[in-house]
């Protein structure tokens, strides 16, 4: 049982990481790019200058780091957890985006949106009560037995 509890805990932690890193990366990138604006023209010198601005923007770098964090946590959790568990659970991102929008960007979040977020959270809670992993490593090429699944 301890193994199953450890598996569940590390799955939760990595899903928490990916639902935080994803929207934070998007937010930082979007803020960084808005600060820089668009290139003045298509002339090579203007594009070079624009590229230099993008590559020296701390917000763009922080956004890129957060996106790398998202990619690492997403692919890592898929090394043991079911895709049909992780993919819908990652929809918690929508809640984080709304919270960031409301409290950091001061956006108004419509009631329909909050209702949708609550429904997503209920859905994720229901999924969270299923076993995070129902398969054995693919290289062993066999399906788990009912006992193995129940043990998780």
């Amino acid at each position: 049982m301890k193994v199953a509890a450890d598996l569940r805990l590390k799955t939760y932690l990595l899903i928490l990481m990916l639902v935080c890193f994803g929207p934070i990366g998007d937010l930082l990138m979007s803020k960084g790019m808005r600060q820089i604006g668009t290139a003045a023209s298509w002339a090579p010198s203007a594009l070079l200058h624009y590229g230099a601005l993008v590559f020296t923007s701390p917000l763009v770098w922080l956004g890129t780091l957060a996106m790398i964090g998202f990619f690492i946590s997403y692919t890592t959790v898929l090394s043991w957890a079911d895709y049909s568990y992780v993919q819908p659970a990652s929809a918690l991102t929508y809640g984080i985006v709304a919270l960031l929008g409301k409290y950091i960007l001061g956006e108004r979040v419509a009631p329909l949106r909050w209702t949708g977020i609550v429904i997503v959270c209920i859905g994720v809670m229901i999924i969270g009560h299923t076993s995070p992993s129902t398969t054995v490593p693919l290289d062993e090429n066999k399906q788990p037995t009912t006992e193995e699944v129940n043990a998780l």
Partner: peptide, 22 residues
Amino acid sequence: GEQVTHRRWIGISLVCIGVAMV
């Protein structure tokens, strides 16, 4: 080869509806 139980299907359906509403 994942085992998608009824409970998981219910959760997935709610996530679909919720995302659409968002």
